[in-house]
Design a protein around this nucleic acid. Structure first.
Lengths: 240, 240
DNA sequence: TCAAAAGTGTTGGCCATACACCCATGC
DNA sequence: GCATGGGTGTATGGCCAACACTTTTGA
């Protein structure tokens, strides 16, 4: 990525790329897909997957293509939305580069494949990726942080949490999504009431799955609703 | 705008612009700043103000510069945020153009000045600008619609409504912002309770302003808080 | 000239709902 | 031990009524 460029305004080379913040759910943490760059600049450092927008290709299409190239997954099964655009003059040491960042959410995705200009691709806990011990190329730490903020906020008032679950799923699995992404425990009883009362969030399959221990859990699939009203309460509200 | 370009990828010319959705509050409606284009393409049609990102200039800086050029206003007094980026291949009939759309909010702004490549600039009610009778250049109708959605959403959970008010302001004026942007009436009693209980939304000046008729209204200025929690209820919630 | 009406801001109360916290039961 | 279901107290907010302060109207 970031290795092709073109003349802009008769002077500075300019290029437009898409970069992806792809989240999936690990066992106990949120994970993000990072690649190890195989080319300069930032060769050998970790970075978000991404690439150039091709001639005649739309932004969403470019993001979807990169997503499929990088994860081998049919993009239609998960959530993909534009995050924001970053274009500070110094963000790429060679050329003037604008990158349109995208946020993608999905259930446990297949083992990522290394792209053309990446040595390796792997899932990294978000906490690790954002810690000072990891240096991300370009301004990708900033982009990742904004992706995390967006994902956390969207859980509140939309039903995207279900995008992290492979169907069919239990309510405990759905609750687990909130608990991992937000980093706080939720009351199982209240969570159940809220999700079941919210029309179109989930649909019961009528079946249930026996667990290793405890009562079997009922199974659900995603409902048609995209917005969640009233929103899922995050915290801040002391009962008494 | 959209009249300079450069070579991209050895083939298609490419350019990056910023376009601004600037909202202000009319007496009974929300208004948006539109220009009449003085150059091809779309010469003579209405469009959002905007222009090219200059060499070495950041995106936010470009948006702020265009805002000041177009309204003559010090951008620091109002709200400016990135909306999203539009880059469909056909959106500009000549070149491949990416535009980073920004949303700006402000109180009754000065009479706009015509820019370099605009014949005229004027405030237009949003309802008019989005009606089928008005054709906006490029994909600016889509951008304007998304700006309106964003503004409406942000009133719920942030304190940006105060950005529409010139200080000092009364609570009725602040409530008027919500009523005009959302197009629904709000209960004055509940509104007062919410705003005054939300810490940092507004600060009392201790003074009051005599009105043409009726009891004088207490005056407030903006508080330090940016987020509003709990959010301002929009509707949807039937009391009983 | 004074009194009543009208209009707007301000304050308080009632009640339904949502949710935090807790406990009981089924598998 | 985990999923499911219910019960209670508190706070938020919709709805409504009363009051405060001002200008306008009218005898």
């Amino acid at each position: 990525m970031h290795d092709r460029a073109s003349k802009y305004d008769g002077g500075t080379p300019v290029a437009v790329t898409v970069d992806l913040v792809i989240f999936t759910l690990g066992r106990h943490d949120l994970q993000v897909l990072l690649i190890e760059r195989g080319k300069e600049p930032f060769e050998g450092e970790m970075a978000l997957p991404g690439g150039f927008v091709r001639v005649g290709e739309g932004l969403d299409a470019a993001a979807l293509r990169e997503l499929e190239e990088e994860t081998g997954v049919d993009g239609s099964v998960l959530h993909l939305e534009q995050l924001r655009t970053f274009g500070e003059p110094g963000r790429d040491p060679r050329n003037r580069t604008f990158t349109v960042a995208y946020l993608a959410l999905g259930p446990d995705l297949p083992a990522p494949v290394a792209g053309t200009d990446a040595r390796a691709a792997r899932w990294v806990p978000v906490e690790t990726a954002l810690s000072p011990s990891v240096r991300l190329a370009f301004d990708h730490a900033e982009i990742l942080g904004q992706g995390l903020d967006r994902a956390r906020a969207k859980l509140e008032y939309t039903t995207v949490a279900a995008a992290f679950c492979r169907e069919p799923f239990t309510l405990a699995e759905l609750r687990h999504v909130y608990e991992v992404v937000w980093g706080i425990p939720l009351d199982p009883s209240n969570f159940r009431r809220k999700v079941l009362k919210a029309e179109g969030f989930v649909e019961a399959t009528g079946e249930s799955r026996p667990l290793e221990i405890g009562r079997p859990a009922a199974l659900y699939r995603r409902g048609p609703a995209g917005l969640l009203f009233p929103p899922m309460p995050r915290a801040g509200d002391p009962g008494h």
